[in-house]
């Protein structure tokens, strides 16, 4: 009995160390992809290769204020969608259409401009808040030795209830796999290269493959800066003004 209790005690200590360790890894990943002390602005270029062989290009300007969970996205290309915008304030994500001059509710889990990217892909990383690590193993991903973490959502608010992420020694995410609630692989994202801007790391390029439709997207992040933005950037007036 005494040995059993000691065994359980050691198991609990090891389990809590394992959990603590995993949470720390996720927190490190989050901290690298979240900019709590500065605003963030960049241009995202999304090249989409459809299963039909068609290729489309979408360019968007992204402005984030992670400390207040606000963001604005303005579509710059293609011409047909130019001026459309997204505004996340006070927990609500609005979509603005300059043609009808109307705002509609949208969701962060919705596709961004009918690409493989989701609206949530443009926000700060909250893996440590939203997911629990259910498994961890050391693996080699190409030239990168990585920790492969298997995650399960601890709330219903995330788009993908299950994920696998490959994190390298510098806590940079190198690959993710997103799964449906039933465990079906939906999307694979690779992060082949990172760029360093004003002392911060962020992906230079992301490659996304929709596992079901086999459509591929390549997202390039450019013109990055971490300078403070005016408060008015995160407002409906700003969207309306720049959309004219």
């Amino acid at each position: 009995m005494k040995y059993k209790l000691i065994g359980i005690f050691f198991f609990l200590i090891l389990f809590s160390l394992f959990s603590q360790d995993n949470r720390e890894i996720l927190q490190q990943v989050d901290s690298l992809a979240s900019y709590m002390d500065h605003d963030f602005a960049a241009e995202y270029t999304i090249i989409e290769d459809k299963a039909s062989g068609e290729r489309s290009k979408t360019v968007a300007a992204v402005f984030r204020r992670d400390s207040l969970e606000k963001y604005v996205i303005i579509v710059l290309e293609p011409d047909i969608s130019k001026g459309q915008g997204y505004l996340k304030v006070e927990g609500t994500l609005w979509f603005y259409d300059p043609e009808s001059r109307r705002y509609n509710y949208t969701s962060s889990s919705d596709r961004f401009q009918n690409t493989n990217a989701r609206n949530s892909d443009f926000t700060r990383s909250t893996l440590s808040q939203d997911y629990d690590v259910v498994n961890r193993q050391q693996v080699q991903l190409g030239v990168y030795p990585c920790q492969l973490l298997t995650l399960e959502a601890n709330n219903n608010d995330v788009t993908y209830p299950k994920m696998k992420i490959w994190v390298d020694e510098n806590y940079l995410v190198r690959k993710t796999e997103d799964y449906s609630l039933s465990g079906q692989l939906l999307r694979t994202t690779a992060f082949p290269s990172y760029q360093q801007v004003q002392g911060r790391y962020l992906p230079r390029q992301l490659l996304m493959v929709d596992a079901l439709s086999r459509e591929r997207s390549q997202i390039t992040i450019s013109r990055v800066n971490f300078n403070d933005l005016p408060d008015s950037t995160f407002s409906k007036q700003f969207l309306e003004t720049v959309s004219r």
Binding site: S107, S109, A153, N156, D157, V158, T159, Y160, P161, D178, S180, L181, S182, Q184, L186, L212
Partner: peptide, 15 residues
Amino acid sequence: IILRVDTLQGQANTG
């Protein structure tokens, strides 16, 4: 064939 939907709470699901 696979049907993809979002659950009531907005999570991706497939059947």
